[in-house]
Structure formats: C-alpha cells, structure tokens
Design a binder for these strands. Structure first.
Lengths: 234, 234
DNA sequence: CAGCCCGCAATCGTATACAATATTCATCAG
DNA sequence: CTGATGAATATTGTATACGATTGCGGGCTG
C-alpha cells in the first residue's frame, strides 16, 4: 500500500518536469495554491494531510514548507505547524511604498539597456495580459504582471534589488487579484503598461520612470481603498 | 554510542537556551560561524560532517541549511550540497544603494516617535560599539551596528521595509568587518552615529536623515574601494 | 594517446519509526 | 456555572535506514 501510494504520488507530484527534488515540486505546488487563493490566509497546513495527499512522506513536505516560509507565504511556529500568511493593510501599504521607492529608480538604470528582443518579449507579455483580462482568467494575471515588471527592470544590474522587487511583486499578487476582480482599473493598468513600454522604446527614460511610479502608486492606493472598505463591511 | 553522542550533542547545541528546536539552534550556530567569518565564502557544508560534529542527525541540519538559504547565507544546489555564499562587488554596491534609498526615508518616519527609552538604549548601543572598537573586538561589531540602525528605524511603522533593511544590514556585516579592520573609518562611523542620535533627539529629522544617507554612502564607497583594491592585488 | 563509457564511492534525498511537545476534553474544586 | 487541572490525543520534531543522484577513476576503444 505504501508502495502504490508512493508511486502514485511520485508521478503526480514530480510529473511536472523540471523539478530535481520532490520537496521542490511540493513547494511549487503549494506556492501556486496559495497564490491562486485556493489556500486562504490563516489556513493551517498539516504535514500529515499534505503527505498523504501527495503520496509522500512528511520530510519533503517539511522542507517545502521551509522554502515557502522563506518566501513569506507561510509562517511556521515551532511545534505548532505552518499557517498561510496574509498581509495586513499596513503591510500592503508598505509593500507598495517600497515598490514606489525602488522600481522607478531601477527602470532608469535598466531602460537604456533594453534590447529589441526584450521589447518584443514585453509586448508579448502585455498582449497575453490583455487577453487574460478580457477572458477574465485572473489566475495567471499576477504571474504575467510580475514578469512584465521584472522584465522592464531586468538590465538594471542590481541583482539584490531585483530579488527584493520580485518578492514584493509576489506579495502584491494575491491582494491585487482582489483589486482586479473588483475595481475597474484593469484597463488603466493595461494602458499604462503600454505607455511605459512606448516611452522606454522612445528613450524617454525619466518620463517612463515617472509613469511607472504613478502606476504603482495608483495600484497601491486603489488596493488599500478596497481593503479598507471590505474591512469596514465586516 | 549513539545515545552518548546524542546526549552530548543535545547539550552542546541546545545548551544555548531560547531555542525551541534543534534545527533552530543549529541554524543560529551556523549563522554565527558564517557571519563571524569562521566559515569563509565558498566553503562546502557537508551534512554528515555537521551532523556528527553537533551529535545529531542530518534532518535538523538540512532544515537549518534551508533556513540559512532563506537568509542568503548559503546556496543549496540539489544533490550537491550547501555552499557558503559571498557577495560580489556589484552585490555589495547594490546592498548599499538599497540602504541609501531606504534608511533615510524610514528614519524620517521613525525619528519623531523615538522615546526617551529608545534614545537611552541607542546610546548604550553606541557606547558598547565604541568600547568594542577600542578593544578591537570586531566580532560583535556587526551585531551592534545592526541593532543601532534598526533601533533608529524601529518606529517607522513599515514592517516589511524593516525586515528588508535587517537583511541588508546582515549582508553588510561580513564585508564591513573587513572594512573596519582595514580602514580608519571606525572613528568616523562612531561620530556619525552620535551626531545622528543628537539630531534625532533635537527634532532635526531631515538633517538626521541626510547624515544617515551620507553615513551609509560613505561606508559603501569605502568598502567597495577596499574590495576593488584587494581584488586587484590578487 | 585522447576521448568515451561504465562501475564505484561519496553525498544527498526520502521513507519509516520513534520521541517530544502542544492541544483537547473530561473532570473537579470553588 | 466558571475556571483550573490533568490525562488522552493529535501534531510536530528528530533519529535511523534505505534509495537515488552526482562525480570520479579505471578500463576500453578509436
């Protein structure tokens, strides 16, 4: 029985090629569940249950949870297990403030080094993004947005800053999904992405950075507004 | 034999009270070794060796290594083990640029909320810092510097920013140790700390933030200079 | 002699088993 | 009826054992 369970689990978990260990595969699976909202903040992740579900032992589960804690997606309390984290309003404000502080600065460093290949890739991302919005498939929105913003800043030559921004974007992801499905700012964000691209391609680096700042500021304010309202409604 | 080994290890590792699990204790022990320079960048951490040394099994070692990877102190390659990381010159520049971008801004938010208790604590830290420099005990310098800077920014009300700055300060730690033992900027840093404190206490928030920016900028430039020289000497 | 292949040793990754800790719920004193 | 107390249970943490992957060195082939 244990054997069959393992075989099934190994196939179902490691089936997605590209993972060199089971724990990495589990981490990725859980990450997607959390980012997609399938696992809501506050949810308790029990090691036994996850192990049985994936058909593996608890060891790789534990290591996956540690990786997720590193990403800030779960919080682990000793002897009490892992809980899916959520961001408070203050933390969301902080995250967007950080993005406002960092992203425009990085764009100025990066914009001039964007190649034609980069631009075509970014335009493709924006198109995919637009299409996803029309169809209403919000699931992949965060991923596309993240890749777009990171793509813009790719050549800033500041690896640590980029890693931090990547983390910030990931943390924006879940709350922003809420914003997009509620507010009408979707089209605006799309247009702003396009304009930023155009400005970069035209060499208007400072203008692009300014618009990026406004873009992030607006997203932050709008999101905080929604959070405040939904909190007041409860 | 296994029992005696475990008893010895359990005492030697968990002896430092305040750790709820063995893996956390190991993580802390390894962190100190890395930050103190006892484990140089590039050093391979073998799980078996560490397990035997601490007198425990490999499982908590693995989990400790994962925690360290989250802090950026080691890099884990699947099936190839963990290696102590070092910062390239570009990364060091990036880290200091980030500190320049973030710390003054946070100080402006935090300075007005510093209480008399905070000031006395910060002064105590500065005194301890000065004393450590005179005696030449460089080991604890990084820790004191980190606590001083974080103490200044404590009341900024931006938890995520503070966590990031804490990480940046930790990553500065090892390289800065080098700077302090080489250059003569020790006294300057000490004086700047004092002046920043005075300005904050006098309510000269903007001036304090400016000095903090200069303080960090200078430390960064000086450190990069030293790195460039030592790299050229090789 | 150079380059490739295979087998071996070292090391890591995972499963299973046991120990330690936290939580729950029944019990009881106040 | 409320709050505290303690055993039972559930869950996590760690040890041991086994399987898988990587890297290396000897031997073979061209």
């Amino acid at each position: 029985m244990a054997v069959t369970a393992r075989a099934r689990g190994a196939r179902s978990v490691a089936g997605g090629i590209g993972h060199r260990t089971v724990s990495a595969a589990v981490a990725e699976a859980l990450r997607q569940r959390i980012l997609s909202g399938a696992l809501a903040p506050g949810f308790q992740l029990r090691q036994d249950a996850l192990a049985e579900e994936f058909g593996i032992s608890r060891i790789p589960i534990r290591e996956a949870l540690l990786q997720l804690e590193a990403s800030g997606l779960v919080k682990i309390a000793p002897h009490r297990g892992a809980v899916v984290t959520g961001l408070s309003v203050e933390e969301i404000e902080d995250v967007f403030q950080l993005r406002v502080s960092l992203e425009p600065q990085l764009l100025i460093l990066s914009a001039r080094h964007l190649t034609p290949d980069d631009f075509s890739e970014l335009r493709a991302l924006r198109d995919e993004y637009s299409a996803a919005l029309k169809v209403g498939t919000v699931e992949i929105w965060g991923e596309l947005n993240r890749r777009f913003h990171l793509g813009l800043l790719r050549h800033a030559g500041r690896p640590r800053s980029l890693a931090i921004v990547a983390g910030l974007l990931q943390d924006c992801d879940r709350p922003t999904r809420l914003q997009l499905s509620v507010s009408g700012d979707v089209a605006r964000a799309d247009m702003e992405h396009t304009t930023i691209l155009d400005l970069c391609e035209a060499g208007e680096v400072v203008a692009a950075a300014n618009l990026l700042r406004i873009h992030v500021e607006h997203a932050g304010h709008s999101l905080v507004e929604i959070y405040r309202k939904s909190a007041a409604a409860e």
